[in-house]
Nucleic acid binder design. Sequence first.
DNA 1: TTGTAGGCGTTATCAT
DNA 2: ATGATAACGCCTACAA
Lengths: 334, 334
Amino acid sequence: MTITIKDVAKKANVSIATVSRILNDKPGYSEETKKKVMQVIEELGYHPNGIARGLISKRSHTIGVLVPKLSSMLMTEFVSGIENITHQNGSSAIICHTESNGKKTMQYLQLLKEKQIDGIIFASELLTEDYYQFVKKMEIPIVLLSTISYDHPVPYVRVDDQHAAYSATDYLIKNGHKNIGMIGGNKEDMVAGQPRIDGYLQAMEKHNLSCTDKQIVSGHGFGFEDGVDGFRKLIEQFPEVTAVFAASDEIALGVISVAYQMGIKVPEQLSIIGYDNLSLAEMSIPPLTTVAQPLKQMGEKATEMVFDIINNNKTVESRIFPHAIVERDSVRKI
Amino acid sequence: MTITIKDVAKKANVSIATVSRILNDKPGYSEETKKKVMQVIEELGYHPNGIARGLISKRSHTIGVLVPKLSSMLMTEFVSGIENITHQNGSSAIICHTESNGKKTMQYLQLLKEKQIDGIIFASELLTEDYYQFVKKMEIPIVLLSTISYDHPVPYVRVDDQHAAYSATDYLIKNGHKNIGMIGGNKEDMVAGQPRIDGYLQAMEKHNLSCTDKQIVSGHGFGFEDGVDGFRKLIEQFPEVTAVFAASDEIALGVISVAYQMGIKVPEQLSIIGYDNLSLAEMSIPPLTTVAQPLKQMGEKATEMVFDIINNNKTVESRIFPHAIVERDSVRKI
DNA sequence: TTGTAGGCGTTATCAT
DNA sequence: ATGATAACGCCTACAA
């Protein structure tokens, strides 16, 4: 049997109201009784029941985090930042692994609603009409992380993907490369897929570099294997390639790996620039030049925004974080 | 204003008891009223309040997960497995990032208690007397993941670290290596530190191979940098080294990285075997031979055990998972 | 089949 | 400064 505020009250010969006051630092008790009560609490090892509290306060001090893929280091960084701020605000985070599955996502949304979570962080996936309608109807504060909604005014935190991709490609060009290929993620992905391809295209055009379809391979995802398959395909259809822009660090590592197998030297014969700046990037051989997103800070900012909405019920402003090229050793300067 | 069971009852012209019965599939209602009620629920977009439910059922359908480090891929795999099973059981997981900080850990423990979580998974860190006493007193079901308690009978899921380390070293020896060095994690770490060193020592002795202090470097942690620093130190004090056993994959990558910088060829001049089999291992150059732990399954099993305790209130048996050498290309067969 | 009422552990509003 | 008591949203005997 777990002990409640009643037990404390009884043993301390006071009413539960008094105990409650002491617990919540509300005026209306003497130092003396406080001392007595605190002692009893200590003796009994009493801990208030947050559930009962939540029933009244209508706050669960919990926020929900929806992520498509748990196994990516990207998410790890996000989650890490989210957890920091959440804890700092005396709350905790429930993490939900959607696997990019619409049905599962809706299930989670309902679960979170039933759990009475105070807010939601929705990461790295398009906010569909369904999701949006649900969240809106339930009046749950939400902010998007590394994604956006095209049709609705939902606050977000992200990097300008197209611009970042432009910068990456531009960096390659500025370093003397002309035959630049790109390995993108999923073209259908309106958030991280197409925009990065567009940024690449934009840079190529700007510098009057030819860019045929053969120079772009867009696979199914952003993983190592996608990089492996992608580069095999790329080098076959565009053998003149001298530099590649990979839409993720994992893809970039896949490229490096294939290059190594084929005896192509990086960066002497092939330059590579990645995207994300995961810890992987420093660990690769050669260390990977890549465009960095401030992952952890983004997670933190998004979380701060959620709490801002929760606490002040004010609308918050979206935020685009700056990206930056992190120069390491995978790009040859011609 | 959020709608409650009362609103549903009123609009459907029934009592809240009836609505509750329908919601929980308890006998005592006609098909007809069910239809009516369900329709009203639909119209109103009603969702039961899990908090209120929890107050009665004394179950929060939430479990707490304590991990020391969020940014490691090890944890990612664990968490992934945990989340799977948790969701499968209609619950969710609150993840707590302790940073190996005792005070923070105790705070989290109390937070979790107040949240009335149903159980705890405690990962990759020694269960101190404090933690144990708290959990015991609060009668919270707990299972340890990739760690153990020396002094108390707390169920755990892990791999036999010493044995695994023995296997790794043995593998090196069987492939003809004699001058084998080791780069361990933290020696103070009674769970993942010393046992792996012991396993290494055991294998060396068994095969009558000399093993001086110079052959072992034990750093502060299990990260990439520890591998970098560790190997620099190792090769200085033990230049004859021809193979190294790294206590983690990240350490191994650090070693490879330094070797590359120094122009030492892997595996031609230096063989390396890692520990963990993270996805990193396949991505390295050359692909890393390592001893694999079934991370995700371990997370899943630990979670199943927690639910076993919660649901059946039975004591569960600890489980040691088998490890396995995953042969890739970082060890030269002499 | 259905409704009434008490209780889960707190907090908040009254009195005293 | 303190104590009774009504909520909070739901479940569950017990009645009807």
